[in-house]
Design a protein around this nucleic acid. Structure first.
Length: 196
DNA sequence: CCTACGATCTGCT
DNA sequence: GCAGATCGTAGGG
């Protein structure tokens, strides 16, 4: 088994982890249904130091409390009332770092992902954006805080090598200087990365 | 209690 | 290209 270990997630460099997650395979097994995809787009959010992060400057609420916990768990929240966005919590307890998974290239269980997405034919519409990833993999806010070392959501290293590009993060124009950080990572020339 | 708005997506023009 | 959907979260009264 090549499942990523707690040591991978608890390191003190969320930007590096966001880059390293490109090319890893994200799995969910929900109600017995196994689905997976290669991660092709991520964004790093750096806790209390990052104006784009929900925990900035030191916000402790029922929602954000999950990000302050030890790395290696899921942070899932509802965006625009509709979309369930999946993040990987990283670093030690108290830091509130997380990586948003923005796009995957489907691998296992494509038919079931199409069903969840209410689509009939395969295309990049299945998983080319953070809301789509959540829906395709069956992830919802009730799964926030679950361990990534368990058997519902986990990530495996398949030794895949991918050319990586960087850019500024999407949808965080309000975050002043933090909006300019090149903390978005994407697989070069991959059709499953999100638009814009 | 009440209000404003968001780490988005879709459908229509 | 743009408006509408849709509701939990956070902050203020």
């Amino acid at each position: 088994m090549t499942k990523l270990s707690k040591d991978f997630y608890t390191r003190n460099d969320v930007v590096k982890i966001a880059r390293e997650l490109i090319g890893k395979e994200l799995f969910t097994c929900i109600h017995g249904q196994l689905t997976s995809g290669i991660i092709v787009e991520t964004e790093a959010y750096h806790g209390r130091k990052d104006k784009a992060c929900h925990a900035y400057p030191d916000v402790h609420t029922a929602r954000t409390e999950i990000m302050y916990k030890e790395g290696g768990r899921a942070y899932v929240y509802l965006c625009y009332g509709i979309h369930h966005l999946f993040n990987v919590v990283t670093n030690k307890e108290g830091k509130a770092d997380a990586v948003l998974i923005r796009a995957i290239e489907p691998r296992y269980g494509l038919d079931y992902m199409l069903f969840r997405r209410k689509l009939t034919k395969a295309s990049n519409k299945v998983s080319s954006g953070p809301g789509k990833v959540g829906q395709a993999l069956g992830i919802s806010t009730v799964m926030t805080n679950i361990s990534l070392l368990g058997d519902q959501i986990w990530i495996e290293d398949k030794d895949i090598n991918i050319d990586i590009e960087t850019s500024t993060r999407i949808g965080v124009e309000y975050a002043e200087e933090a909006a300019l950080f090149n903390w978005r990572f994407l697989a070069k020339n991959n059709v499953y990365v999100s638009n814009k």
